[in-house]
Design a protein around this nucleic acid. Structure first.
Lengths: 102, 102
DNA sequence: TCCATAAATCGAGATATCTCGATATGCAGG
DNA sequence: CCTGCATATCGAGATATCTCGATTTATGGA
């Protein structure tokens, strides 16, 4: 729970938007054939929606992952990203604790 | 409640530290004579503790104020800053709402 | 009115972030 | 193996943030 990294990762509107999109799998095209069971979304789908370059999105997902907001799972040539609700909640608890008076 | 400005303001360890210090007036030297009733802390006291230049701290306090985390009150030649608990809580509610799944 | 003090603003150099296109890596199918 | 696709990494230019010292503005007191 690195609050520094977490805040840096959140300090960008597109990265926050991606986290919101990932709340609901149906914000993206249907899962690839043979991966219907997977919760995650591949980089290409995220890129398509965000309309930024592939390298930028890959970088963004790396930052979100380092901050703990997402987990990744590689399946074949694809990397599937999904939210890490536990870490997200841990961050919220930490920032709340840091900001509020006892 | 500009979440963009708020996250930018929080994206700096010294600014977060200042917000923490301001939780408790006793983190600073006693109030100036004639201002004992005031909740706030003057810029000079904050600068002393943060060990950064006067202009940097003035800038920081401006950012924290723009983000809504502090209010300022001018009394004579001093500007007294104190936390705005209401806005801080509003930010926490907003970020929680943005980050958590429904 | 003049001076001293507190704070805000200005201008600038150093550093970090953003974002891209190009390249490298890893994997699947023929 | 060789080719093609998905993703990651690299290098770089543009832009933003950090932080300072110098200057300006506001105020209070002699």
């Amino acid at each position: 729970m690195d609050i520094e990294k977490s805040l840096a990762a959140l300090n960008n509107p597109v990265r926050r938007q991606i986290l919101e999109w990932l709340k609901d799998r149906s914000n993206f095209p249907p899962a690839l054939p043979g991966h219907e069971d997977l919760e995650g979304v591949c980089v290409g789908y995220i890129q398509e929606k965000a309309k930024l370059s592939q390298s930028t999105i890959s970088n963004y997902m790396g930052l979100l992952k380092q901050a703990g907001f997402v987990r990744s799972e590689r399946h074949g040539q694809w990397t599937f990203y999904r939210r890490d609700e536990e870490n997200i909640n841990a961050f919220l608890a930490a920032i709340q604790n840091e900001l509020t008076k006892p």
